[in-house]
């Protein structure tokens, strides 16, 4: 049974985002890979061929594109695939130690899955969480940010209980509800955009 055989509405939705042409069909390649990986954890050769047929190309092309991007997997990952950002901004916040800690506590090397099938780890490059470093991403889901040693241990314990905590999304709030920014000293300074009226749609000149 092919993966997409019973998913016509999904396919129709994905293909509808791109032009109705051979090139447009090919554009669906990445969304389809993502779809399969999220469902099965990795993309097998059989799935590559299936996606190739859907996109009007060959398995070679699918494998080529897939291998180019770092978040697609050809082998199954653990139930919790932990991706640790290792780029400088996180490294300045201790991500190297975080990584060493994870690898030793979980007893798993990159590319492997822990004996209980729960964990796999991957060093990744900048996740865009430099202000809330260090950061760990769980699978194709959210980030855990400001991961201190204690937070890391709490996270591991929760995952061992198969109770992953909801991802963090700490938003750096610098503009207050009145529209003015607050300095580090706690002063509200500047003006508020709320006090400025949008120009009238009819044109102001």
């Amino acid at each position: 049974m092919t993966y997409f055989a019973d998913k016509h509405p999904l396919l129709a939705d994905i293909f509808s985002r791109y032009p109705d042409s051979p090139q447009g069909r090919r554009s669906a390649l990445m969304p389809l890979l993502r779809e399969v990986q999220n469902a099965e954890g990795f993309v097998s050769e059989a799935r590559m061929r299936e996606i190739a047929d859907l996109c009007g190309t060959t398995a070679t092309e699918v494998r080529s594109v897939m291998s180019f991007y770092s978040t697609y997997h050809t082998l199954p990952t653990g139930r919790y695939h932990l991706q640790v950002c290792s780029t400088l901004m996180c490294a300045l916040a201790g991500s190297d130690e975080l990584w060493d800690h994870l690898v030793s506590v979980l007893d798993v090397q990159p590319g492997d899955v822990s004996a209980d099938g729960r964990f796999s780890v991957q060093k990744v490059e900048c996740l865009g969480s430099c202000g809330t470093a260090p950061v760990v991403q769980l699978g194709d889901e959210g980030y855990y940010e400001n991961v201190t040693r204690q937070k890391c241990d709490r996270l591991i314990a929760a995952l061992r209980q198969d109770a992953p905590p909801p991802p963090d999304n700490p938003v750096p709030v610098t503009v207050r509800e009145d529209g003015r920014q607050m300095t580090a000293a706690g002063e509200r300074v500047g003006a508020s955009i709320h006090d400025r009226k949008p120009l009238p749609a009819g044109g102001d000149r």
Partner: peptide, 10 residues
């Protein structure tokens, strides 16, 4: 016109 050979990895 055959897409039978391509680069893998990057």
């Amino acid at each position: 016109g055959q897409e039978v050979l391509d680069f893998i990895e990057r």
